[in-house]
């Protein structure tokens, strides 16, 4: 009786994930090896179970690596990967430069402030993502709030062109995912024993040298985790480059969307999705390793 219940507890979520997470990915993989066709559905081969086993084998023979070889040889596509990596990398760097001082200040704030500060740092994540991106359109547009204020104060003669540029995409990415960068750094700083810094200062270290030789190195695991939690979602982002970027600011997410909806080249979109996952695999494994090492200590 008990083991039946145990099995059911496992079976229900497992079957759901197999049906709606694992199976769909098998289909993406299969489709990335298919060919676009003017048909419904718009690709071939189409597997038909009624053809029997040999019929399926016959269909599988039509698999092709065409989409991949085009993705990996055409400069148009390679440019998109390179610019995605560059934009996600820059966003990560900026997020660390803003997030680290913030996390440090949070960890040094009086103890009774800290729970409120943590809630303040997490709360934006709970509010609407779309609204937070939209807010930056209102601010950054040529006739937006920022330009209006700067022109009004006479600081600039012409409106700044930030909206629809890579700069706007960077601002949007940093803004959207900053809480993910701050929290792991804060956690790493918060659990440090303050006696370590006091010991260093007793031994003659200045405040600055104690920070660089004790506090900072000990916070590196949190810094890595925070960086990856910015980098990974930034790589696959669609909404931010689509709303804040110009038509030239392509990222993989936008490429995928265009291949799928505008060009209706589903095999190409599937191959692009697989390549994106491939690019994310290394940072994900790094993150996983950092997390499990954290769990061991």
């Amino acid at each position: 009786m008990k083991s039946l219940a145990r099995r059911l507890v496992l079976a229900v979520p497992l079957l759901w994930l197999l049906a709606f997470f694992v199976a769909p990915f098998a289909i993406v993989l299969k489709l990335s090896l298919s060919r676009a066709a003017m048909a419904r559905p718009p690709y071939e081969p189409v597997f038909n179970l009624s053809d029997g086993f040999w019929g399926l084998v016959e269909s599988a023979r039509q698999f092709t690596f065409d989409s991949y070889s085009l993705l990996l040889s055409d400069w148009l596509y390679l440019d998109v990967y390179v610019s995605s990596l560059r934009i996600a990398g820059l966003a990560t760097l900026i997020a660390l430069l803003i997030g680290y001082p913030l996390a440090l200040a949070m960890s040094r704030a009086p103890a009774h402030w800290r729970p409120i500060l943590i809630v303040l740092a997490i709360a934006p994540f709970w509010t609407s993502f779309l609204v937070r991106v939209y807010a930056w359109i209102v601010i950054l547009k040529d006739e937006g709030l920022l330009n209006h204020a700067l022109l009004g104060m006479g600081l600039i003669a012409e409106p700044l062109r930030i909206f629809a540029t890579e700069g706007a995409v960077l601002i949007g990415l940093v803004y959207a995912y900053l809480p993910f960068t701050v929290l792991p750094i804060f956690n790493a700083l918060d659990k440090q024993d303050s006696a370590l810094v006091e010991a260093a200062m007793d031994l003659g270290a200045t405040k600055t040298s104690a920070f660089w030789s004790v506090t900072f190195p000990l916070s590196l695991p949190g810094l890595y985790a925070g960086a990856l939690l910015m980098f990974i979602p930034a790589m696959g982002e669609f909404v931010i480059p689509d709303l804040l970027g110009g038509s030239n600011d392509l990222m993989i997410g936008r490429l995928l969307w265009a291949e799928f909806f505008s060009n209706r080249d589903w095999p190409m979109a599937s191959a692009a999705a697989i390549v994106l996952l491939g690019l994310l695999l290394a940072p994900l494994l790094l993150f996983e390793r950092a997390q499990s090492r954290e769990a061991d200590t």
Binding site: A23, P24, V28, P233, F238, A273, L276
Partner: peptide, 19 residues
């Protein structure tokens, strides 16, 4: 699914429904 780009999850599920 927590770290998967939503756009990839979206395409995958759409293809399932089409298939």
């Amino acid at each position: 699914p927590l770290v998967m780009p939503e756009i990839v999850l979206g395409i995958a599920l759409l293809l399932l429904f089409v298939a």
